[in-house]
Nucleic acid binder design. Sequence first.
RNA 1: GUGAUUGUAGUUCAGUUGGUUAGAACGCCUGAUUGUGGUUCAGGAGGUCGCGGGUUCGAGUCCCGUCUUUCACCCCA
Length: 465
Amino acid sequence: MSQKPSIPKGTRDFGPDKMAKRNLIFDTIRSVFQKYGFMPLETPTMENLSVLTGKYGDEGDQLLFKVLNSGDFMSKVKEEDGKDSQNLLRKISEKGMRYDLTVPFARYVVMNQHEIAFPFKRYQMQPVWRADRPQKGRYREFYQCDADVVGTDSLLCECEIILMINEVFEKLGIEDYHIKVNHRQVLSGIAKTIGAEGNERDFFVAIDKLDKVGPEGVQKELLQKGFSESSLEVLLPLLNMEGSIEDKIAQLKRTFTSNQVSAEGLEALETVLAMLSSFALAEHHVEFDQNLARGLSYYTGMIFEVKVKGVAIGSVSGGGRYDDLTGIFGLKNISGVGFSFGVDRIYDVMEELNLFPETVVTTSQVLIVHHDLPAQEYGMPILAQMRRSGISAELYPDVSKFKKQMTYANKKAIPHVIVIGDEEINTGLLTLKDMRTGHQEQLSLQDICQKLTLRGHTDTKDMKS
RNA sequence: GUGAUUGUAGUUCAGUUGGUUAGAACGCCUGAUUGUGGUUCAGGAGGUCGCGGGUUCGAGUCCCGUCUUUCACCCCA
C-alpha cells in the first residue's frame, strides 16, 4: 500500500525551472557582495537554544523551531516537569534551527574574535526557519542573503549598503523601488518629545503601521497604549511630513534644535547622503521615512527597508546598524551594520513583474539520437569529443524509436540533434538537425563542433546587446 | 497564538435541493508517419473526490476531527 507523500506546511520544492531563476538571483547577489569585499560564511542549521533564545523578543522565541533531543529524551524528565511547557522544553530540547543569519554571525564573531581581522565583512546565504503561519510571501523555510560589517562605525558601510542594493536591483532589472531609511536616534528623539520614554517599543510598533492603517489608525493605537492627546498633537505633523529627503531632514532639524540625540541621527543621515553623491549614482532610490521603525530590537543606528512599488509583497530587503550585537555573548563595543535580501520575495516580485529572461533554464546544446545499439556505441566517442570541445551534450540512454528521442529533445528544448544510423556510420558524416528551424545537413564531427562553439559565442553576444 | 478560507485526473477547473457508471480542457500514451519533434487527425490510459470518523436506504455534496492552501490580525523577509 503506497501513501501519498507530502511536505511540511510552509516549505516548498524548487524544480529545475524555479532553481534556474533562483540561482540567477543568488548569483547576482553573491557577485555584488564579493565585489564589495565581503567574505563567505556558513553556519550550522542548528544552534544551541541558549544562543537563539532571548534574541528576538518573546514573540521571536515562540517562532523558533526546536529540535528534539536524540535518544531517550524523556529520561531526564520528572513527573512535575510534565505540565509546564517551558520546563519540559529545557529537558527535552537543547537545539533549535536558526531564525536569522545575524545572531549566528554574532556568535561566530565572538568565538573567533582573535583570528578575525576587523573590520570584518562577511556575507551569508542560507535558509532560515520560522514557525509562523504561512501566507503570501511568508514561508516557514526561506532564504536570506546577509552582508554585515562589524568592527567599524564608519558611515561608509551604510553608504555601501545602499550602493549594493542599487547594484543588485539594477542587475535583476527591478527599477521601481525605494530604499526607506530612518535612524533609531531620530525615532528616540521623537519618542522623547512626546514623552514616550520607557515605552518606545509600543510607540515604534504603532507608527510603523502608518502605511497600513493611516494616521487615524496610528492615533487610535497610541491612545489605546496610553499616550496622551496632547502628545499626539505634537506627533501627527511629524508623521505626516512630506517632501524630499533633504527637506525632511531640514524640517526635523528645526524641530529638534535642543535634542542632541536626534541631531546626531540626522547628521548621520546627511553624511551618508553626502558620501553617496561621491559615487555618482543616476538615482539612489533613497527616501526618508520618519515612520520606519523595524521590529528587531538590536538596531541602534540607521535602519532601512526596501520595497518594490506596485507589488503587494512586504519588504524585500532590510537592515540597520547595531552598536552592541555581540555584547550579549561577552564581546563589548563592537559596532556593526548589516542588511539582508529576502530571495523568496525577490523571486515573487520578479515573477509578478515578469522580469526573468526567457533563457534562464540551461539545457544541453545537443542530443545525440541513435537508431540501434551499434549506433549508440558509435555515438559515445562523439559525445566525449563534443564535451571536450566545451559543448554540453547528451546521448539518449535507451534504444528506442526516433520519434521518442526527438520528442525528448523537443520537450527539453535542446536546440540541436545529431542523428546516428547506418547511413552515418557508413559515410562517416553525421546528420545535424536544428530543432528550431527544422533544417538538417550532413557534416563531419569537427565541423559540427566548430559550428556549435561559434554559434555559442554569437548567441551570448546577441543576449548581451 | 486569534479569526476566516481552500482541497475533485499529471495541471487548471466543472459537478444543480444528497440520487445510476464523477466530467471538460490542457497534458500524457498509442497509431496515421518501421530514419525525425513542434501542427493536424483517430484512438486510449488515468480519480482511495486531502485523510479519519459520523448522519443517511444512499455522501464529491451534510456534520465533527485532522492535515493542507490562501487571507486578515499579531509579528516579520
